[in-house]
């Protein structure tokens, strides 16, 4: 053991969990009689599958319990079903799921509007706290937004003007 550099009496509990003889320390593999026997344990009762549950192709079936909210649906759901044809080792699996998430976000906005609820983006993005705690940052973001929008409008307008000039040339 190293010589300690100083006194640690000011730290409540210093060293109470130290065990210098326990090398290399926890967590070591705790072998049990069920090691190397596969999925032999007494499985918990199976939760009924009342909604579609996708499962990794690296396991034979669903686990005994699972979450049921938000089953796959729509285009994002189709993409998720596609993703689960690939193992967890494949980029196709994960990138398809990420793409599905982005599509699902658009589906969410569409569904909100269908229900007559236009999303309050300012509140959902935490705009109130940004205004309360970071007024300068908030102002910068607003000004940047205005500048970018203005630039885009000018660019589009410029292109439209060019098009109409070309039209008159014809």
């Amino acid at each position: 053991m190293k010589k300690l550099a100083s006194d640690f009496s000011h730290i409540n509990g210093w060293g109470v969990d130290a065990d210098p003889l326990d090398v290399p320390n926890y967590p070591m593999k705790h072998r049990t009689e069920n090691d190397n026997k596969g999925m032999v344990w007494e499985r918990p009762p199976q939760q009924p599958e009342l909604v579609e549950i996708l499962h990794s192709n690296e396991r034979p079936s669903v686990s005994a319990v699972f979450g049921t909210p938000n089953p796959p649906s729509g285009l994002s759901g189709q993409l998720r079903r596609f993703a689960f044809k690939y193992s967890e080792s494949e980029w196709t699996h994960w990138l398809s799921l990420l793409l599905a998430d982005r599509i699902n976000m658009i589906e969410g906005i569409r569904d909100d509007i269908k229900r007559g609820h236009f999303p309050d983006f300012f509140t959902e993005l935490g705009g109130h706290s940004e205004w309360k705690y970071n007024k300068i940052g908030f102002a910068k973001k607003v000004l940047t937004g205005i500048a970018v929008t203005g630039l885009l409008v000018l660019l589009i307008k410029g292109r439209d003007d060019d098009d109409s000039e070309n039209d008159s040339d014809d």
């Binding site: 967590p27 593999k29 705790h30 072998r31 049990t32 069920n34 090691d35 026997k37 999925m39 032999v40 344990w41 007494e42 499985r43 918990p44 549950i53 996708l54 499962h55 990794s56 690296e58 396991r59 079936s61 669903v62 686990s63 005994a64 319990v65 699972f66 689960f84 967890e88």
Partner: peptide, 21 residues
């Protein structure tokens, strides 16, 4: 109950997540 929980690896349970092993 699974072999991982039995070993104290409660963060690695095999009976709680169908979507990823």
């Amino acid at each position: 109950k699974c072999v991982f929980c039995e070993q104290g690896l409660f963060g690695n349970c095999h009976e709680s997540n169908p979507q990823a092993t």
